[in-house]
């Protein structure tokens, strides 16, 4: 089953000066992602898969594809632990 990424309904966010400002309305937590994290977030919000997000980073940030996949997966795990991303299914 393909992995499914989604942003929960109680999350609000904006891109501010190149960074992603994320508000978790359920617990009033504020998270700010740097430029790279912001790009991952933007692509996630557009509904892209892990592979597609990594491909974009590979092109935009000139990192190796395998490294991009690893970085994206690590980022998503962190965001999931913070409760701002839901990951279902398996790779």
């Amino acid at each position: 089953m393909a992995q499914s990424l989604s942003i929960p309904d109680h999350i609000r966010w904006r891109k501010v000066a190149g960074e992603a400002v994320i508000v978790d309305q359920s617990n009033a937590e504020l998270i700010v992602l740097n430029t790279t994290g912001c790009r991952v977030w933007e692509l996630l919000a557009q509904g892209l898969s892990v592979a597609d997000i990594a491909s974009c980073l590979h092109q935009e940030f000139e990192v190796e594809q395998d490294q991009a996949v690893a970085d994206v997966e690590q980022c998503l795990v962190s965001l999931q632990e913070l409760g701002v991303v839901t990951i279902t299914g398996q790779t």
């Binding site: 501010v16 000066a17 960074e19 400002v21 504020l30 700010v32």
Partner: peptide, 18 residues
């Protein structure tokens, strides 16, 4: 980044936020 840092940044960089 803490909330205060974010608020300060919007003030300093004139970013419409509220």
């Amino acid at each position: 980044m803490e909330l205060n840092d974010l608020v300060s940044r919007t003030w300093e960089e004139n970013i419409l936020f509220n």
